[in-house]
Design a protein around this nucleic acid. Structure first.
Lengths: 185, 185
DNA sequence: GTCTATACTCGGATAGAC
DNA sequence: GTCTATCCGAGTATAGAC
């Protein structure tokens, strides 16, 4: 991994742990084992580096989800597999958490990957719901758009509850609580 | 409203808008129309002021919710009234949003009101679910703990989705998506 | 490409006058 | 109680040497 890569990886970790406002160039350099000059040689400044980091995180998150969505089984099985997947719950969502960061939301270039990734996720899940309703694996009454929003929201909120309580079980509870929507019991 | 009160109110607004890390004493003073000396006369420093602000916000939020929970109607009606209540969606939840703030989570005194308020909310909603199952206004299969977690999570996550998309409709979608859980369609 | 030096502002707080 | 002065470190970046 070269220096530019290490800088991006360090930035990804720090954005996840401390958010954008709470992350300083100096902290990034130290974690990456790079000096000031090195960082400013490879990137224009903090926003440019953050942009590279957020984009990489967004791509990784989408790819990981897509892995579940295109796996084996009925639409319902793929959906519940995604929901029940192992997660580092107490760290929160590395994309959703950025919505709380004022400097991210104020910068179109930093906000765009956040907006797009969550929109993509909702759309992808809505498609699965539609598919599941069509093939009979999901209850026929479900509205795909609303159900997808509820599922993604329950996950994002599950992170919030788990972090507030310092207990990953709350994420699990939230997921278990929406599963009846999908006809699971 | 005296100076101490104005300082607390300014802090509440700034915590909501910019989070703890993103809020400086100077910004608080300016918004409150108070000087440095004045602020440090009334409060020990930024953490003490934040604590007062967060506690006031937590109390206000609980009181507002309790108003809906003790209103008229069946348990289900009170629950849906709470969910459908008018909200300033794009500003996010002034308590839930704090879970993303590293300096809040690292300080036991600042974190406690966040932990407690969300735990109280879940407990209160779980009670309503239990009540609704008992009086027949809610489906008998519901698990109160999980359902309460799912409901609170859907709201918290609804804020995240709405802010990411810059569109309050996503909060509404998430709520509409979980209503079928309560037997609404 | 990376290092060190330098610069300037802001964050957070203290001291003492009024 | 409030004001102004002052302090020191951190945040963010530039300049120029190597």
């Amino acid at each position: 991994m070269d220096t530019a890569d290490r800088l991006i990886e360090s930035t990804r970790e720090l954005l996840w742990e401390r958010g954008y406002v709470g992350t300083s160039p100096k902290a990034i350099q130290q974690r990456a084992g790079a000096g000031q000059g090195s960082m400013y040689h490879h990137f224009d400044g903090k926003p440019a580096l953050a942009r590279a980091a957020i984009e990489r995180t967004a791509e990784e998150m989408s790819a990981l989800a897509e892995l579940q969505f295109t796996g084996p089984g009925t639409a319902r099985e793929r959906l519940t597999a995604y929901l029940l997947r192992q997660r580092d719950v107490l760290r929160g969502c590395p994309i959703g958490g950025l919505t709380q960061d004022p400097d991210i939301m104020a910068d179109a270039l930093l906000k765009a990957p956040v907006t797009q990734t969550l929109a993509w996720l909702r759309g992808r899940i809505a498609d699965l719901v539609t598919e599941g309703v069509a093939d009979g694996s999901l209850p026929p009454v479900l509205n795909p758009t609303n159900t997808a929003a509820a599922i993604v929201a329950a996950m994002q909120g599950g992170y919030v509850l788990a972090r507030a309580a310092d207990d990953p079980a709350l994420f699990e509870n939230a997921i278990a609580g929406i599963l009846p929507l999908l006809g699971e019991r």
